[in-house]
Design a protein around this nucleic acid. Structure first.
Lengths: 135, 135
DNA sequence: AATACAAACGCAAGTCATTTGCGTTTGTAT
DNA sequence: ATACAAACGCAAATGACTTGCGTTTGTATT
């Protein structure tokens, strides 16, 4: 019994591999990157299978979906390590993971102000890393 | 001489009206909403004209573009008021603009910790608005 | 192990926001 | 008043998905 079965999903090679690919990545991946990753593992599935798998894995909360870049592509990440943010170097695209979140208290305040029920947030911080900023 | 001419753009009725519509909105609008706004002003232009106008206005920094809802639509806003964040209803996609930013102090701290030079950030907060959360 | 069947898949076609090619029209500088 | 690049309209193209449908496959049950 694996995490797929536990979530009520059938254990197919594509889905298992997608989970592994995302687990081993230190940054969110696009559907295309995931597809390419599957090909590298010699797993040849249709693109629609990838999308359907990603949708299923999101529904079951095994992975998360974000839209960090602002363009039309979505990105996916493994959902084990809890809440986190990214510090991205605008030049070399290096990504530092930030585990500490400064927004808890702020969200509480915002709920009172707006009467929303807040479910989450997305925060990405951009800048130049120590190596790039001296150039 | 108006802001369009000043930016090296021709002053067409569609572009002037788009600017006015965005100026008068208290939230970012989608291309479709802008198109509908033009129709209400009796300005009938092709959708591609709207997209081309929005692209030109973005290039000239007269307006800004964001992609905050996670779906494929982009949103546009008048570019007078500086830094800001959004509170988005996950159900109806309504967007509330947040002018106050809680991250100044946090960024300073992060710079010391990581030795990055931080240039900016993107923060979007998600939840259910008062109207949707009771359903 | 054999059977059953919903879930998953492949493939092709469809969707939807947006973009682009191209021939025509129009602001704006001369 | 003229010239011409910039804008426009229209139709077709793009790109990231999504969906319909007939076939295959995990998994639970004999």
């Amino acid at each position: 019994m694996n995490s797929l079965n536990r979530s009520g999903l059938k254990n197919t090679k594509a889905r298992a591999a997608i989970l592994k690919i995302l687990q081993q990545s230190n940054r969110p991946l696009s559907a295309e990157e995931i597809y390419d990753g599957l090909v590298k593992c010699n797993i040849h599935v249709n693109a629609s299978t990838v999308y359907r798998a990603l949708t299923a894995l999101c529904d079951k909360k095994l992975i998360g979906k974000t839209n960090v870049t602002g363009d039309k592509k979505s990105f996916f990440e493994y959902n084990a390590k809890g809440h986190r943010h990214y510090l991205i170097c605008s030049e070399c695209k290096k990504i530092i993971t930030i585990e500490r979140c400064p927004l808890r208290a702020y969200e509480k305040m915002l709920e009172l102000e707006t009467n929303f029920t807040i479910s989450g947030h997305k925060l990405s911080i951009y800048g130049s890393c120590p190596e790039c900023k001296d150039k």
